[in-house]
């Protein structure tokens, strides 16, 4: 919340409420379009984090509360990565971004793997709430570890990718889409495509789907469930790291606390889309991003979180398993 209240990037500044009063129809359409672009960008990051939640929930059946903090770790690792690139003299921005992407995904994945190995695996098969409490503990540990290691102050990064396309302009209001926004959307689409491929067509994906349906049965049929779950955490953490990298670039400021509220929203997105469903996570992320952007653009920036949660409650009343979730069948 603190993070999103402080837009640095030029194109984000059009969040300012009141812009809706741009007189004529074209102006209103332009304003709408701009909010749509901003919302989709925001939604892409939420969606990437939501996948981590929904995948873990689908297979292990637990709320991985520390996932938001894994995303925060991803943001810090990428910031360190950018500074390292600067020290090593790699200044060509696309190359630097690519290397940092690999750097952040790799190291954040180690965090995801370790958290699962240390704090969740020993609790598998015990009471339902034990992993949840353990996850909350991990979340507190990660936040305070980063605060101690990196300091509590907000870390700013000067904008690296400037420039934008002007889509249309009417009077004093321009609809722009920045290169960065295009990059975020492209990277998200590419990752989603790759991820869908993994789930649908690789042995790992098959093992994951089998473990999701019935863990005991899968292990009886020779699926190494522990390894599959580890892989799930690694993939989730890597995707969260990408989201962290994109947010670092997009907003230019991070601190040790950003994981909490973004984590909650990404989890809300996962629930909204139907927890356990991967397209649902992306859809939910998009919806939450759009709701936030439009709410801030048309109403007030203060209650945007209330709007997101309000819509979640509203959707759940009419579709208790989320938008794309399958209803659970209870067997007696």
């Amino acid at each position: 919340m603190r993070l999103f209240g402080r837009p640095l990037n030029g194109s984000v500044r059009t969040f300012a409420p009141g812009g809706a009063r741009v007189g004529n129809f074209r102006g209103r359409m332009a304003y709408f379009l701009q909010q749509l672009i901003n919302g989709v960008t925001l939604g892409a990051t939420y969606g990437l984090i939501a996948i981590g939640y929904t995948m873990v929930y689908g297979i292990v059946g637990m709320i991985n509360f520390a996932h938001g903090d894994i995303y925060m770790i991803g943001a810090f690792v990428s910031l360190v990565g950018f500074m390292l690139m600067g020290t090593m003299g790699i200044t060509w921005v696309p190359l630097a971004c690519f290397l940092v992407l690999i750097f952040a995904m790799g190291f954040t994945a180690v965090y995801g793997w370790t958290v699962e190995r240390v704090a969740y695996r020993p609790l598998r098969g015990s009471q339902r709430l034990a992993p949840l409490i353990s996850a909350i503990g991990v979340s507190i540990v990660l936040q305070n570890f980063v605060q101690l290691a990196q300091g509590a102050r907000v870390k700013p990064l000067p904008p690296m990718i400037r420039g934008s396309f002007e889509l249309s302009s009417s009077g004093n209001f321009q609809v722009t889409i920045s290169y960065l926004q295009i990059g975020i959307i492209l990277v998200t689409v590419a990752l989603m495509a790759g991820f869908t491929y993994i789930i649908k067509f690789t042995p790992l994906g098959r093992a994951q789907r089998a473990a999701e349906q019935d863990r005991t049965m899968a292990s009886l049929l020779g699926v190494d469930v522990d390894r599959t779950i580890s892989a799930t955490f690694v993939i989730g953490a890597a995707l969260a790291a990408v989201a962290g990298l994109m947010v670092t670039l997009y907003y230019g400021v991070i601190d040790f606390y950003i994981g909490f509220i973004v984590g909650i929203k990404a989890f809300t997105a996962a629930v909204l889309g139907g927890i356990g469903s991967l397209p649902g996570a992306m859809l939910g992320g998009m919806l939450i991003g759009l709701i936030e952007a439009f709410w801030s653009g048309y109403f007030s920036i203060e209650y945007k979180d209330v709007a997101a949660f309000g819509i979640l409650v509203f959707v759940l009343i009419f579709r208790p398993t989320g938008l794309l979730g399958r209803p659970e069948i209870e067997k007696v």
Binding site: I73, F76, V77, L79, V80, G81, M83, L84, F103, F107, V110, Y111, T114, F145, V146, A149, Q150, G151, K155
Partner: peptide, 10 residues
């Protein structure tokens, strides 16, 4: 784990 976050300080 320590390399990126303990090894460097922003």
């Amino acid at each position: 784990l320590a390399f990126p976050l303990l090894g460097f300080r922003l």
